[in-house]
Write a protein that binds this DNA or RNA. Structure first.
Length: 593
DNA sequence: CGGACAAGCTGA
DNA sequence: CAGCTTGTCCGG
């Protein structure tokens, strides 16, 4: 390195490069570290520096740099403690390119929540940890095989415990384990502790992980420092909570894969229904067809084409389940009382006076409300003046009322917002709610999807994968077929691949159909896409021009879609385009298109 | 980001 | 032309 050190013994002033913790400032600046304390400063450290008349936080990105000529260096104002390790600084640079963001936004995620003056001593690893063995688990053989493969996807049925993959990873040393939810993290942490493995729960135990322990956390833990990282595991890689919703829309699975690659350690993904992205990346390992199938519940498909339309969403198979003593969860992804109404007299569809959209009846009110413009009006037919409406597409509230009348006992309604104050407790035998219900209910005997077509036929390119993911989540509530777990699927398209995948316990039904469709329609992962929106979107797309290989689609609703043959082409084009002033959202790998 | 400074707008 | 707003630049 460049040094002008006069004598090796004398403490010397050092020059460090600092990236300010201000995502809007994409530039680094050089500062002096006084001779006293120069030995302690290291790459990744958190510092405070003077910048343009104010103090900002930042990270040391390099030490002993050659400052540009002609600038007067100011001293670092304060060293505030430890920050992301050098490998994470480099990873943040890569992620900034990959998701069209700023390195500082990733480094914020990689930073400890509170100041860490120094790292604790690394805990000692005891002897070989015992395998945790629960009901049905991945055989240890597959787990070991996956780690040996170094880039593998372990497909495990919903009721099959993926913990042996984690156990196999920690046998190799300190692992990084990413889970989709906080309660999955808590479960893995508890079992690793029981097995005597030194564990750091991210973000609370940031320093312990940096010192050297197995780190377990949700998405953000993809950015946790891990001392002596030996393996990376992503649980439920298909789960959308691994992707950040706000831009930069980074995906923990993809960060984990890149991180493992750079560190030269194995990376294993687990999922009951691996994404096409995962399948295209690593070697697929699964149990025998019969073992995997046993981990999916019994699936009753109710072909709605054959049901009496007057029975609405309550055909005989569902009524039988509701009238049994089984604990039943009914899922309907429509809130409110009714989402589509028509006049009981003349049959005219109820629409908004102002904007003509179909109006709905909210759960709480005896009025009609336009979901598009918010206009509200009394329940009166604009065509004939009658005040009685028929619910043509019922919402959760209305269905709950009907089911309660049917079973003659309290039925709880659950929504994403939680239980309604005046409603029966969720401890009731029958529960009705949106898909958020699946997060709030621990166990059930039957999960019934009252209108699965809403998921199967949703106008989103990932609808099929998302529908199977939903069925997998429901399957966890009821357990595998051995335990008697059942799903009841009401659909007009019983031969849809997502329905068949659940019936057969074979996710390749969806993967194969989807792979073919994406090839045909040029959707990811066959291509790489980004969605550009916000007031400054037009200006940005204009500045982007027509880069070779990139298709610009739109605008539609003020949003543009960019499509390229691969991420390198897409991300290079995005990186080469300066951002205009004004609000702009660039979402690489958008989920909902 | 937020301060500095310059170029544009208003009022007498 | 002072006094103010609005915009662009740049920081070590």
């Amino acid at each position: 390195m460049t040094t002008t050190d006069p004598s090796p013994a004398a403490p010397r002033e050092r020059v460090v490069r600092v990236l300010p913790d201000e995502p809007a400032i994409a530039k680094s600046f050089d500062y002096l570290v006084p001779a006293t304390g120069g030995d302690q400063v290291r790459v990744g450290d958190r510092v405070r520096v003077a910048l343009h008349g104010r103090r900002v936080g930042g990270w040391v990105t390099a030490v002993d740099v050659e400052p540009p000529a002609g600038v007067t260096l100011r001293p670092v104002a304060k060293r505030s403690g430890r920050g992301p390790t050098p490998d994470l600084l480099e990873l943040a640079g890569w992620a900034a390119w990959r998701w069209a963001g700023r390195p500082a936004s990733f480094l914020r995620t990689a930073n400890p929540e509170r100041v860490v003056p120094s790292l604790p001593a690394a805990p000692r690893r005891p002897g070989a940890a015992a395998d945790g063995v629960a009901a049905a688990t991945v055989p240890g053989g597959i787990a070991e095989q996956a780690l040996a493969a170094r880039a593998a996807v372990v497909r495990v049925a919903p009721a099959t415990d993926p913990y042996p993959v984690v156990a196999a990873a920690v046998r190799r040393g300190n692992a990084l384990v990413l889970c989709p939810t906080a309660d999955r993290v808590a479960g893995v942490v508890r079992r690793l502790r029981r097995d005597g493995v030194p564990v750091a729960s991210h973000p609370r135990d940031w320093a312990l992980g940096a010192a050297g322990a197995t780190v377990v956390g949700t998405r953000a833990a993809a950015w946790a420092p891990v001392g002596d990282l030996a393996a990376v595991v992503v649980i439920d890689e298909h789960d959308e909570s691994h992707q950040q919703e706000q831009a930069p829309t980074w995906h923990a699975r993809d960060v984990a894969i890149e991180r493992a690659r750079r560190a030269g350690v194995p990376c294993v993904l687990t999922s009951p229904c691996p994404s096409l992205e995962a399948l295209g990346w690593g070697e697929l390992l699964a149990r025998s067809r019969s073992d995997e199938r046993a981990g999916w519940p019994i699936v009753d498909v109710v072909d709605m084409r054959e049901q009496d339309p007057r029975l609405g969403m309550l055909p005989p198979p569902l009524v039988r389940a509701l009238r049994s003593d089984a604990r039943v969860v009914c899922v309907l992804n429509r809130t409110g009382r009714a989402r589509l109404l028509s006049c009981a007299g003349c049959g005219e569809l109820a629409r908004c006076e102002r904007c003509e959209a179909a109006v709905s009846q909210p759960a709480s009110a005896d009025t009609l409300r336009c979901p598009r413009c918010g206009e509200e009006r009394p329940i009166v037919c604009l065509h004939c003046g009658k005040t009685r409406m028929k619910a043509r597409r019922q919402g959760v509230t209305r269905v709950r009322d009907e089911i309660e009348a049917l079973v003659g006992e309290p039925v709880a309604e659950l929504t994403a917002a939680g239980r309604k104050a005046d409603a029966p407790a969720p401890g009731s035998r029958v529960v009705v709610g949106t898909e958020a219900t699946l997060h709030q209910v621990g166990r059930a005997d039957v999960v019934a999807f009252l209108d699965l077509d809403q998921e199967l036929l949703a106008p989103r390119y990932r609808a099929s994968e998302q529908a199977l993911a939903l069925l997998a989540r429901a399957s966890r509530l009821v357990g595998g077929r051995a335990r008697g777990g059942r799903l009841l699927l009401q659909t007009f398209v019983p031969h849809h691949e997502a329905v068949q995948a659940a019936v057969l316990g074979d996710p390749t039904r969806v993967a194969d159909a989807e792979a073919e469709r994406r090839e045909l329609l040029l959707y990811p992962p066959v291509t790489a896409m980004a969605e550009v929106s916000g007031p400054a979107a037009g200006e940005f797309v204009g500045a982007l021009g027509v880069p070779p290989g990139v298709d610009v689609l739109g605008p539609s609703d003020g949003r543009w879609l960019l499509r390229a043959p691969d991420h390198a082409t897409l991300c290079d084009a995005l990186a080469a385009t300066p951002r205009p002033a004004g609000r702009l959202r660039v979402a690489v790998d958008p989920l909902r298109i």
